[in-house]
Design a protein around this nucleic acid. Structure first.
Lengths: 217, 217, 217, 217
DNA sequence: AATGAATGAGCGTTCATTCAT
DNA sequence: CATGAATGAACGCTCATTCAT
C-alpha cells in the first residue's frame, strides 16, 4: 500500500497502531497490581489514554483482554533461551547461569515479570488460560532447563539428580523473586531488597548443590 | 447415652461456637481459589452451611473476614518451629530438614497452605494486611531460618554464605510448592505432581549446596 | 384471682406489665426523631431494655407498633378539652387561651408533642392511619375549636369569620411549635427558642385579630 | 422547521442536560411523599425515565441526591421576595399580603411546596442539611418578614409586637398549608380543602391582629 | 415470658458491556 | 475510529421477622 511511500506515518496514525500495545501494557500493570476482578476497565482505558468504549474496539471482553495480556510477549524471550541452548558449546553450569541472568534482565526485571504472579493468582478463575500458559511457557522452560541439566549430568559436570523435580526446585527462587517484586515488595515490606545478591546466592548454592563432588572418600 | 453425663451445651450453642471457624475455613478455601474480589459472600456462607446474613453476625465486613482468614492459625506452627530450634541439639542440616518436613506436614499440605498464595495475590489491595503478615509470619520464619544457618556456619557444617539472601533462596521452593498446589495444580496442569520427591530433591540440592567441602584441593 | 391478695406484685411482674408502655415510649421517641423507615426495631427494643424478640410478644409487626404509637395517649387530653368546653361559662377568648395553654402543657411540651410531626411525615406511607388520626384527633379538635369560635361570635365577642378556615389558621402556630421542637430545634438551628413568648404572641395576635372592633369609623 | 436555524444540539445531548433536573423532580416528589428512607432509587430513576445506574452518573449517592433536592430552586423565589421588599413603597400590610400571595403561587402551590415537609421530616437524620436550610432559607425569610414588620410598626401601621416571635407566628399558617397539602391532604383526609379561603382568612385575622387601633378610648 | 441466633428479601452501589452520535 | 451516556445484572450489606431454646 501507499503506506510504504510515506516515511513517517502521521502521529495520529502511529498512536492508533500502538493502541493495542498501550492497552495491554496498562492492563498488565493493573491486573498484576490488583488482580483481574478488582481491576476496572475504566482505569485500564484511562491509563492507556483512551475512553472505555475504545477498549472494546480492540478486545471483545475483559476476559479476552486478560488472555491477550497472558499471551503477549513471553515467547520471544523463551525463543532466545532455546536459541542459547542450541548454540551453546561450553559447560552446562555457565549456560545455566547465563540463562537465569538473561531471564532476569529481559523478563523478571520488567513489567512482564508480573505475569507469573498474575497467572498464579488467576489460575483458579481461568483454568483454560492456565493450561495454555502451562503448555506454552512453563512446559517449554521446563524442557529447556531439563536439557541443560541432562547435558550437565551426561558430561559428569553435575551429579545425577532427579531431573524433573530439580527443574522445579531450580526455577522456584527465580519465580519467587519476580513474584515478590510484584506483590509484597511494593507494600514497603522488606525482603529480597537486592535482587543481584539474591541471584548470586541462588546460583552459588545451586551450582554447588549440583556439582559432582570431586570425590571425597 | 453418656451424653447425660456432660452438662450438655445445647446444640444451638455448640453450633454458635463453631460458626466462626467454619466460616473461616470456607472463606479461606474460596479466597485462595478465586481471590478476594471474585469470591461472593453468598458462597462462603453456603459452603459453611449458613445464610448470608449469618456471616455478618461474626464478621463485620468482607474485608474483616479476609483479615481474620489471614490472621488465623498461622502462628501455632511458627511457635512449634521456634520451639524445635530452641531444643535442637544435633547438626544444623538435620534441623533444617526437620523444619521443612514439619512445615509441609502441618501447613503446606493443608488448607492453610493456600495462605501464601492468597497473601501474594492480594497484597496490592491490602497493603496493611501484607505488612501485618510480613511482620508476624514472614519475618519470624526468616529469623528462624537465619538462626539455623548461622548455627550451621558457626560449627563449620555449612560454608559461609550470605545468610540474608540464602534464607529467601531456601524458602522459595517451599513457598512455590504450596503456591503451586493452590493455583496451577488444580487446573490439571502438570508439574510438582509428587511433593515428596520435590521436597527430597530440594533438601538434597540444598544441603549439598551448603555443605562445607570436606577438603577438595 | 389471687393477685388481689398480694399487696405488691414482685418487681419482675411490675416490669412485665409496664413493657408495652416502655416500648411505645421508646418507639415514639425514635419514630419522631428518625422517621418510621429509618428506625430499627433493635434500637427500640434496646431503649426499652428488652431484646428484639420480646418486642414481638407485644406487637405483631413494625407497622402495628407504629399504629399503636399513634393511637396511644392522645385521646385523654382531647377529652379533657371537651370537658373544659362543656363546663366553661366565661368568655370565649379566655376559654381559647386556656385550651391552648393546657394543650401545650399536657401534650405539645411532652414526648407526645412529636406525634403531629410523625403523623405528617408518615401520612404518605400509612394513609389508613392518617385517616384514623384525622377522624379521631384532628376532626375532634376541629369541632372543639369550632364550638369555641361559634360561641364567641354568637355573643359578639368575636367578629364573624369563616369558621372552618379560621380553625386551621388558629391551630397552625400551635402545631408548628410542636413540630419545630421535634425537627429543626434539636439540630441546633435557632428559631422558636422561647415557646412561652411564642405562645403569648400567638394569643395576642389572635385575640386581637378576632376581637369585634368596638366600632371605629 | 425553524429547527434548522439553531445549531441543533443532538438529541442525546439535550437529554443529558435535562437529566439532572428530571431526576431532581422525580426525587423531590418521592422524598416528599414517602420520606428519604422509604424512597427507593429504582423508583426515582423509573419516574425520571432512566435506569437505576444512570442516576449515579449525576449524583454520587442517595444522600447527595437528597442534598441536591433541598438546595435546588428555593433561592430564586427568595430573591424575588427580597426584591419586592426593596422596591415596595406602599403600606406594609399590602406588602405582607403580596409576599404571601406570591410565595403561595410560586412555591407553596408547586412541587417545591413539599420541601418544608421533607426538611422537617428528615432534619433528625440530616442535621447538617437542616442547618444549611435554616441558614440559607429560613433565616432569610425570617429577616425579610422582620423588615416588613419593622417597617409597619415604624409608620404606626402596626401595633408594636414582639417581632421575632411574631414572624414565626405569621409564617406558621403558610408553612402548615404547604405541609398539609403534601401529607394529610393526599390521604383523602379533609381539611384545608380550599387554600384560597384559608389564605384569605389568615390575612384577614393577621392584619386585624396587627393593625393599630385607630382610636378606641 | 424472654432470648438472640438465624434467615432471606430487599436496597444502595458498582461496573462490564452496548450503542447512538 | 472514538466517545461517553446509558444500561442492568450482580454483589455487599441491612434489618424485620421467626423460632428453638
Amino acid at each position: 500500500m501507499s503506506k510504504s511511500f510515506v516515511p513517517a506515518a502521521p502521529a495520529r496514525r502511529r498512536r492508533k497502531e500502538a493502541r493495542p500495545a498501550e492497552l495491554l501494557a496498562a492492563a498488565l500493570d493493573l491486573f498484576v497490581e490488583r488482580g483481574f476482578a478488582a481491576t476496572r476497565l475504566d482505569e485500564v482505558a484511562a491509563r492507556a489514554g483512551v475512553s472505555k468504549g475504545t477498549l472494546y474496539l480492540y478486545f471483545a471482553s475483559k476476559e479476552e483482554l486478560f488472555k491477550a495480556v497472558i499471551r503477549q510477549g513471553i515467547l520471544p524471550v523463551l525463543e532466545e533461551g532455546e536459541e542459547m541452548l542450541a548454540q551453546h558449546r561450553g559447560d552446562a553450569a555457565s549456560l545455566l547461569q547465563d540463562l537465569m541472568r538473561r531471564w532476569w534482565d529481559l523478563t523478571g526485571n520488567t513489567p512482564l515479570g508480573g505475569v507469573p504472579k498474575l497467572m498464579i493468582s488467576e489460575a483458579g478463575n481461568f483454568p483454560e488460560v492456565a493450561r495454555y500458559y502451562h503448555e506454552n511457557v512453563i512446559q517449554r522452560v521446563h524442557d529447556l532447563l531439563g536439557n541443560v541439566l541432562r547435558r550437565g549430568i551426561e558430561n559428569r559436570e553435575f551429579r545425577p539428580v532427579n531431573i524433573e523435580s530439580a527443574i522445579d526446585v531450580i526455577s522456584a527462587p527465580m519465580l519467587m523473586l519476580s513474584i515478590w517484586q510484584h506483590s509484597m515488595a511494593p507494600c514497603s515490606c522488606g525482603g529480597m531488597e537486592d535482587p543481584e545478591t539474591y541471584l548470586r546466592t541462588h546460583v552459588d548454592l545451586l551450582l554447588n548443590g549440583l556439582r559432582a563432588k570431586e570425590m571425597s572418600e
